[in-house]
Design a protein around this nucleic acid. Sequence first.
RNA 1: GCCUCCAUUGUCUAGUGGCCUAGGACACCGCCCUCUCAAGGCGGAAACAUGGGUUCGAAUCCCAUUGGAGGUGCCA
Length: 485
Amino acid sequence: MEVRTRFAPSPTGFMHLGGVRTALYAFLYARKNGGKFILRIEDTDQERYVEGATEVIYDTLKACGMQWDEGPDVGGDYGPYIQSERKDIYLPYAEELIRKGKAYYCFCTKEELDERRRAAESRGETFKYDKHCLYLSADEVRKRLDAGMPYVIRQNAPTEGESSYHDMVFGDISMPNDTLDDMVLIKQDGMPTYNFANVIDDHLMGITHVIRGMEYLSSTPKYDLLYEAFGWDIPKYIHLPTVMRDASHKLSKRDGDAYYSDFISKGYLTEALINYLALVGWNPGDDREFFTMDELIEAFDVKGINKAPGIFDVNKLTWFNAHYIRELPFEKYLGMVTPWFDSVFDGMENKPDYRRLAELMQGRTEVFGLVPGMVSFLRYMPEYGDDLYFNKKMKTSPETAGPTLEMVRPVLEGIDDWKEDVIHDRVMEKIAESGMKNGAVLWPLRIAISGLANTPGGAFEIAYLLGKEETLRRLDAAVARLKKA
RNA sequence: GCCUCCAUUGUCUAGUGGCCUAGGACACCGCCCUCUCAAGGCGGAAACAUGGGUUCGAAUCCCAUUGGAGGUGCCA
């Protein structure tokens, strides 16, 4: 039988990284098994409707390289793929359940239920609907229905015995039936709840493997009861461990910065995000770290999925990101880094040589968002202290720096062809002539023109990028300052 | 509270009774390279939550405790 998995997000307007990982595993499982990956939009909560939210889902999945085989925009044989457009499908099924005694009309109002819930909670008990409306006579139900009284339809769950099911990650799970609450299937507004629509749609769409977060672990027995009542095949379950922000907090929307788009705008690469996310909660069974999407498909196996929640580690993500940036073809990197350069150099008369700067920056870029901070010294001379001239190994100090700089200055001034190799050769000649160590000259020179302990590239590169005029200007300023001190 | 699930270094993980004096990766520290930083190379510190069993033998199996997560919505 063909494997069919689905990703069924609710359109909130953002794609959460936990959601991206869930989608990824569902996608990988389908591809690995030569099956179909289906996208279904779960928008049964009308109050949460967000304009443009489905586009965010489409765009993110596409950017990540997870093309769905069936879905709202691409169609398929089991549409529509947006639950609000399937509204009329669900009620007949709920009525069938009522006929079978597996569900019932409930006229209790939300307000009184809320009150009872609060009361139960204050007593330290778990609130459970008492099946009050199940015991209404058929006549009474008819009467209320005819009178147009608002109602919901509830599942009639057993109260005795035990329910169990098998999960491909967590194994066998069982729970006492008396903990099963009679969940609402059809809401007062006529829309199905997630709990109901999910079961109906998964069945109607031929989903063979339900891959979702482990927050559904304890409600799954209730879903199985529904499948059984209809006489439908129960899908295989693959529940995924949660992605955590830290040991005790889920990576949630409320924490901020947990959205795919946040990471992209900070300058993370999709490839890095996918590669990293795949490895939170799953391992390939060997020591490999780097995977393309195709390699992930090839290596993916449910056996490698862990049960324990995993903490999202930005450090490691950043390491992956730096790796992928280094691997970028240079032209691609140049194109990507240019807007970040522009954010610093726009409006500048003599902008640094972007191409050269990019060459120096590519191996040093962990996240694109950090680039401006690393190159802004080329436009604005930073404030710095003279102690930067101290370098133990080179035996340099503010005292030795002055004369050294004055020695180099005329050499630089004499260069008409301001190219990196020319600067290099002339200065090195002078150093050789002076008998000093390379570093003893280059260290103070770099400090004088950059004002920074660390720079992308050394003295020659910085001097070249700055241009002759600015280099000499900064050099003079440094000399003057050292003399004063 | 009740129900379900989980538990190897700071983090992601390998490990399915002897191959474990517990392996890899990130981060961290040191050294090398080097005009700085980064990259790269080499090395270091760092874990089987606790207590009971079972067994000739336990990170691996069982139980309890502790800790954590999830559920307990007319949200999904």
